[in-house]
């Protein structure tokens, strides 16, 4: 119950009238205003929510695509090629996993590269922050693919990139699905990084709209909660359709006891 009630509350608040919502009561709405509220939220500030959805989608898709390709390529070389550098790289990956980014210096770097306040800058940031996870996930999976497969392909005349793209990558499908699901939820829900690196109206992401509307809708809690509801829908869909992959991914080899 404790886990469901807040969602029921969000749902109820989202369909109330403005006056009723302002009371904060956990009560059945006297009047269902779902559609009106929806339309109103979408229209506010020149359809900002639609723009935000578009931006968030672009960022999520772009970053996840790059993460899959980069993560698999790095994990592959790291697993297959013994070298004294591997330990160093491993340490950096752990650092990347644990250490929070240094915000202001990152803004400084982004500004110097002309990437500050841009969508592609944001994509690259998400790639940089998600890379460690992707590499470690792929590396441990690739360890279970026999090397003889690479060698068979090499003897068949495959160039290195052909070995990777035509033999290894297709075999990584299960982890790739996991990675896509986990990372897209994480990136779609990310608030902190867009807050720092994507200020400004034209680049808002979905999470930022919530934050902006929080001040704007002080008196219109119904709309604010409708917005929350809309923002919750994509993860809900992912959850409904990919529950298995998520569970697999979250616990993948996590506990080898």
């Amino acid at each position: 119950m404790i886990f469901i009630l807040p969602f029921v509350y969000i749902l109820l608040m989202a369909v109330k009238t403005k006056q009723e919502a302002a009371l904060f009561l956990f009560a059945w709405p006297s009047e269902w205003r779902a559609w009106e509220n929806l339309v109103e939220v979408v229209q506010t500030r020149n359809y900002m929510l639609l723009l935000a959805y578009f931006n968030s989608t672009v960022i999520t898709l772009g970053a996840v695509t790059l993460l899959v390709i980069f993560g698999a390529m790095v994990g592959y070389v790291l697993q297959r090629r013994r070298s004294p550098w591997n330990r160093v790289v491993y340490v950096f990956l752990l650092i990347g996993l644990m250490v929070p980014p240094a915000v202001v210096p990152t803004i400084w770097v982004l500004q110097n590269l002309g990437l500050f306040k841009t969508i592609h800058g944001m994509i690259l940031i998400q790639v940089a922050y998600g890379l460690s996870f992707a590499v470690l996930l792929y590396r441990s999976f690739i360890a279970s693919i026999p090397r003889a497969l690479d060698e068979a392909a090499i003897i068949d005349g495959a160039r290195p990139w052909q070995v990777f793209f035509r033999v290894i990558l297709p075999l990584l499908k299960p982890v790739t699905v996991t990675l896509i699901v986990v990372q897209s939820v994480a990136i779609f829900n990310d608030f902190t990084n867009p807050l720092y690196y994507l200020p400004g109206r034209e680049n808002v992401t979905v999470q930022l709209t919530l934050f902006n509307f929080q001040s704007q809708f002080q008196s219109q809690y119904n709309l604010l909660f409708m917005n929350i509801l809309l923002v919750t829908i994509p993860p809900l869909l992912v959850f409904v359709f990919c529950n298995r992959q998520i569970v697999a991914g979250m616990t993948s080899g996590g506990v080898k006891g």
Binding site: A148, L149, A153
Partner: peptide, 15 residues
């Protein structure tokens, strides 16, 4: 691939 050889592996190594 330029040696004109083919190899059969112990665990078959089929794709």
């Amino acid at each position: 691939s330029a040696r004109g050889i083919a190899m059969v592996f112990q665990n078959y190594a089929l794709y």
